[in-house]
Amino acid sequence: MYAFLSEEWIKAYADEWNRNEKLRSDLKDFSARIKYYIEGSEDRAVELVVENGVAKSVGLANSHSYDFELWASLENWKKMASGDMGPKAAMLTKRLKFKGSMITAMKYMGAFEESLRMMGRIPTNWNL
Rank of each mutant, 00 (worst) to 15 (best):
V54F: 11
V58K: 00
L92T: 10
G100H: 07
A89C: 02
T93M: 12
K94Y: 09
K99G: 07
S101H: 09
H64F: 13
W9S: 03
N18K: 05
K78P: 04
S73Q: 06
I122P: 02
A55T: 02
R33V: 08
L96M: 11
W126A: 08
W77N: 04
V58C: 02
F68L: 10
S57Y: 05
F30G: 01
G100P: 07
S63L: 11
R95V: 02
M106Q: 11
I34L: 12
A61Y: 00
Y108R: 10
E47R: 09
K28S: 15
G40A: 07
K99M: 09
A90I: 03
L48E: 00
T124I: 08
K94T: 09
M102A: 14
E75Q: 14
P87M: 05
I103E: 12
N62A: 13
V49K: 11
F68E: 08
K56H: 06
D29Q: 10
N18A: 06
E16C: 08
K22Y: 09
K56Q: 12
A105R: 13
M1K: 12
E8P: 02
N20F: 04
K78H: 14
A105I: 05
N62H: 13
S57G: 12
G110E: 11
F68R: 02
E16Y: 10
L5R: 05
D84Q: 14
F4S: 01
A81D: 06
A61H: 01
L74I: 12
A89N: 10
P87D: 07
P87E: 06
D43L: 06
A12F: 05
I34H: 00
S101K: 09
D26S: 11
M85S: 05
W77G: 01
A72L: 01
A3T: 13
E42M: 08
A111M: 03
N20K: 09
A12Y: 03
K99I: 10
G40W: 04
E42T: 04
Y13N: 04
K94E: 09
A72Y: 00
S73H: 04
M119K: 06
R121G: 10
S41Q: 15
E75V: 11
A89L: 11
Y2H: 15
K107S: 07
A111E: 00
S65G: 10
K94V: 06
W77K: 05
G59M: 06
A14T: 05
E8H: 13
R121C: 05
E16R: 11
K11W: 01
Y36A: 00
M1H: 12
I103W: 10
I38W: 03
A111P: 00
I122W: 04
E75K: 15
N62E: 14
G53W: 03
G86N: 14
K11S: 13
L5A: 04
L23R: 03
E42Y: 04
A3R: 12
K99E: 14
E21Y: 08
D43T: 08
G86E: 05
M85H: 01
M119E: 03
R44H: 12
P87C: 06
M1I: 10
A55Q: 01
K35P: 01
K11L: 10
A14W: 00
N52K: 15
N76Y: 10
S82C: 07
G53M: 06
N20E: 11
E21C: 02
E7Q: 13
E39S: 13
M91G: 06
